[in-house]
């Protein structure tokens, strides 16, 4: 394997990031969009899940800066640990860097979500980027569900969103990433800035699924039918499960039957043992609703249990 593509060990990666941040005084100061200058602000959290008999416990949650988790919830029994990931500042300002990692030891199951949408604020012409790196490592016989709320990319933002997942031969991943360009409430359009987004999934060190979106405001990609077609919401939901053609036909029909569904905004495909659902449209809340519907429908197939909705989604 070429040296530059050796999967980054999340622990080493975080250690390095921490050393970098220790040399920066910015870490000890409070942060707000109005006070931040041209400097790096790091926040990280490293979760470790481990099995205690039939229970998945959160063994460790090492954090730095404003990333936190609440105590784990067990709404569906001890086997699966539900985690709410909190980022009290609510969004990333110029120079922010969030590192989120989770390691699942053998025989563990976790569901990680967020209580509110992530935000990447406008960078006001700064040269610094705002980056979020998510790194998951799953041992054998594990299930990880990564179901965060959407990331809102404000006009002018310089976002970097990277998700990397390392699976073993029989670990299972179900994760979605939703990006909303511009603030929906104010009808803001994304006319400046960029958002570079990547999703890489490896199984036993071999690339399994790779997608890289380069969204640059004003680019041909933003306006063209082969790109975003001027839509503001983009979502990808992948699940390591093998569905038959009939299963997918039924799933498409059931999504199209949801009230308010625009059929042309949805597509689904089965690429070897990865199922992929994509949304490209102008309704971020419908994207989430559709993904949740798919998650509900598929959970018995990939996890052999019914979906239990995290209560935080109700608030």
């Amino acid at each position: 394997m070429p040296a530059s593509l050796v999967p980054v060990d999340p622990v080493t990666y975080l250690e390095k990031a921490k050393q970098e941040s220790r040399s920066s005084a910015a870490v000890t100061e409070p942060v707000s969009p109005s006070t931040i200058g041209e400097r790096q602000w790091l926040a990280s959290i490293a979760l470790q899940f481990s099995a205690r008999e039939d229970k998945t416990v959160l063994l460790q949650a090492k954090h730095q800066g404003p990333l936190r988790v609440q105590r784990p919830f067990y709404p569906e029994g001890p086997a699966c640990c539900h985690i709410y990931l909190l980022h009290p500042p609510g969004g990333m300002v110029i120079g922010d860097r969030l590192l989120i990692s989770a390691e699942l030891a053998e025989n563990t199951q976790a569901l990680i979500t967020t209580p509110s949408a992530g935000k990447i604020y406008g960078a006001k012409g700064s040269a610094l980027v705002q980056s979020q790196q998510v790194e998951f490592s799953l041992a054998e016989n594990t299930v990880l569900e990564w179901l965060p709320q959407e990331t809102i990319v404000f006009n002018g933002a310089r976002g970097r969103l990277q998700t990397r997942v390392h699976l073993q031969s029989n670990s299972c991943y179900a994760g979605w990433d939703i990006v909303r360009l511009g603030r929906a409430a104010s009808g803001e359009r994304f006319v400046q800035g960029e958002c570079l987004q990547s999703l890489e999934v490896y199984r036993s060190g071999r690339p399994l699924f790779i997608e890289r979106n380069r969204i640059v405001a004003g680019s041909k990609l933003q306006a063209s039918v082969w790109g975003l077609n001027n839509k503001n919401t983009l979502g990808t939901f992948i699940v390591t499960v093998s569905l038959s053609r009939t299963d997918i036909d039924e799933l498409i029909e059931s999504v199209e039957a949801l009230s308010g569904c625009v059929a042309s905004d949805w597509s689904m495909t089965q690429k070897n043992d990865v199922f992929i659902a994509r949304y490209l449209g102008d309704d971020v809340s419908f994207c989430r609703r559709g993904f949740e519907h798919i998650w509900n429908s598929l959970r018995p197939a990939f996890k052999n249990s019914a979906a239990v909705r995290p209560r935080i989604w109700n608030t």
Partner: peptide, 16 residues
Amino acid sequence: DEQLGVGLPGLSMASA
């Protein structure tokens, strides 16, 4: 290497 790879949402939709 780190910039390799694609994501053309419209093309992905059309192909699926």
